[in-house]
Design a protein around this nucleic acid. Sequence first.
DNA 1: TTGTATGCGTTATCAG
DNA 2: CTGATAACGCATACAA
Lengths: 330, 330
Amino acid sequence: MPPTLVDIAKRTNTSVSTVSRVLAGGAVAQRISAETRARVTAAAKAMGYRPNLLARGLRTRKSNTIALLVTDFANPWYGQIASLVEEGLHRHGYSMMLCNSGEDPVREAEYLQMLPQKGIDGMILVPLVRTRRALHEFIPPDLPLVILDRPISGISASVSSDEEQLAGILCDTLLRASVREVALVTGPSTIVTHRRRGEIVSRGFHVVARHEGPARIETGRQAFIKFGEGRHALPDAIVCTNNFLGQGVIETIAQIERPPIIACFDEIPMMHLLPLPIVCSIQDIPMLADAAVNLLLPQLTGESPRLQPVIVPARAVTNRAFQTRQSIRA
Amino acid sequence: MPPTLVDIAKRTNTSVSTVSRVLAGGAVAQRISAETRARVTAAAKAMGYRPNLLARGLRTRKSNTIALLVTDFANPWYGQIASLVEEGLHRHGYSMMLCNSGEDPVREAEYLQMLPQKGIDGMILVPLVRTRRALHEFIPPDLPLVILDRPISGISASVSSDEEQLAGILCDTLLRASVREVALVTGPSTIVTHRRRGEIVSRGFHVVARHEGPARIETGRQAFIKFGEGRHALPDAIVCTNNFLGQGVIETIAQIERPPIIACFDEIPMMHLLPLPIVCSIQDIPMLADAAVNLLLPQLTGESPRLQPVIVPARAVTNRAFQTRQSIRA
DNA sequence: TTGTATGCGTTATCAG
DNA sequence: CTGATAACGCATACAA
């Protein structure tokens, strides 16, 4: 129904190839006489021609499209990074499609299979799958790929924060605040970042309670309820392995008098205004986004100059209530 | 390079059509002898066959893919709604791709053109374009389409909140709190929701200051700085036309003693814990998402039963600081 | 400078 | 039950 090259060719008394060449623009178009070129472009505009990208992609095996598959785009962290990645890719002439696995391995598998079949040129992935082998049961080994946030061993094109440092600075801050006992609220232990963060914290503190669940606000809420049941004395701090969990805990715990310190990874919005001590270990989102783009681009252009995993430094930030608490104790 | 139907056909001494039929499954596959069927499926699995979705889409004009184009997926509001839309569509066998115009009309135009050319089956759009005419310069008139959040006159498949009510309940709450003078922080007045919300508020109160800019946190921060320069006495309330603007204002204003009421549209995370009076007019995100999906599905299956614009009711919520303030004044 | 012919991987039509 | 064969819309090698 929409006009095709054939239609334009008929209308202008030329052939499909001529039309194709004209519309291709650039050098190829220059090899066509100015006269026919004008006729063809005019007709194309008049008929409202739009190239069928499926056909073009089928033929050229190029789509100028990158897929970014994340685990939960309801989490603003992913929205922010996606937004920056989008801008970066756009500057280089690629468009980006964001897909969501919703922390569901089945949906991840579906998208993982489908996206390459749809002819994307490359993919940036926040993975649920944990091994290179498992991953490549779904995607072809030659697809330009960058692993984001959660390194997979054996894949060198990956960007993530230094988990040791990330958790380390959090622990240091807690130690300086005389924390000894903590409760731990973690996302799925099948996910390496959550597991790793939990492990590192466990190494440094006496963990008196634990709760694990999907990395969502609701899980944080449940955690506090569960902790409340077990014992009346709360620990010195509650450590959450991501922002959503932290937010859930904060929402429910703030009513307590003398609440424990909340320590979490990633940012809590407006933490400075919240009436309880908070320390966040914050990843450098712009740098992560930038690195992801820069790691993908050379793969797209064919050149594959020994990609190295990029490890981005993080920093710990305490809120005002935390700082006040410290100066009072001092 | 990846195996195709032809490869499988050769390997099994059959024809492409047979292979295609077997792999199609369902009724078509039943018309093939159990024996060849087994041989073909086995070979397909062994060779790791994956259908080329570009080719299939080119042929069938169906992709089982819906695009959701929003204006700013760094804003959690869009992340939440996108997440719900995704789940809804997924339940009906569609996958969803989220794209971001970043409040840039040029990028919107690009995606608007490209997505249909890529063979999506339908689209849900949070538009920047303001008229039906302008929109259809980019997308074909027969593309299944739902307009989300910002109705466009002449397009009946649209879902949004009742702006009159949404702004009305906010104004009522402010009036009951004895607010007379307000400052207004709005997103781009080219966007109907921002403009409309601003107008309604202007009707009810004396607007002593205004600031307009992109609907981002940064704009809210700038607004407060600007207001601070002009006069020393702040108004009774600052009204922001969305959550991001509100967050920016709150972040910068909280340091003030006796801060004004912050009134905004959409949700402020953990508002109950913030130390200044806040009232939010909150849209029903799940209902919006649901309606969007339900408005799109019938268009996809061909039946087009007189679609009506869906108007979703909203509610105003005040935080604890607001409530405390009220009881003190009473 | 332009046209012809071929193929990208599928599905669908038409024979047999 | 199965196999040729023709599209789908585009890009390109090869001719002219």
